[in-house]
Amino acid sequence: MMETDACIHPYPVGTASVRRMAMEAGALGFGSIVVPGEVAGVYHGVRIIPAVIISETDLRRVIGQIRRHSNSGNLVFVDAGDNGFNRAVLAQKGLNAIRCLHQIPKKAFDHISARLAYENSIAVEIDLYPLIHEKGIFRQRVLNRYNDLMRLHSRYQFPLILSSNAFSVLDLRSPDEIRLLCSLFGMEKDDTNWALQTVSTLISPVESVMVAP
């Protein structure tokens, strides 16, 4: 399975074109990248996986947007919110991943949210951007949050995805570098390898097969 950077932001949001991002990601060792608002394609041997990021806080609108985009061929990501919001969103079919967990209060993603994520095969995004770009207390908070997330993951085994959220080619990190960064918050190498490949299973989920007698 291909190793995937689960979210990058090319030009005009970032400072690098999607082709350049794909070229650099391929050189670093990725087989595919997830790009919000982009069309599917292959540049320089790297697969572009389109995605939609829903950043609303109103639950009805979020659910409406999930339903609208769920069969559009895009991966659907939702920014996490408070506890009730997260539980409601994680019960929705068609959602692929929940993101920005480092920006919400610690109790907003608890053991019930973790179980819901596992039951509905909704991935939880680990954003590496703040680990690379923040320092001091802000990075300590993010590390603390991810440590807590890993504790929940070891108990509930919900899927994880890893993203650099790169706005430039200078923000991209190779799979090896990501493995090293993840060791900062106690993520095992096997878990990191699995998380790097989770996007492939989100695109084509494994479904049970009924064998006719």
């Binding site: 670093l28 680990l131 690379i132 770009h133 430039s168 080619v169 200078l170 923000d171 991209l172 990190r173 190779s174 570098e177 090293l180 960064l181 060791s183 900062l184």
Partner: peptide, 23 residues
């Protein structure tokens, strides 16, 4: 060396010039 590599992964600029270092 592994700790140094991790620290280098988090290096993003040298005197306000954006930079990335890859081992």
């Amino acid at each position: 060396e592994e700790k140094l590599r991790i620290a280098i992964v988090t290096l993003t600029s040298v005197t306000e010039r954006r930079i990335a270092l890859h081992a």
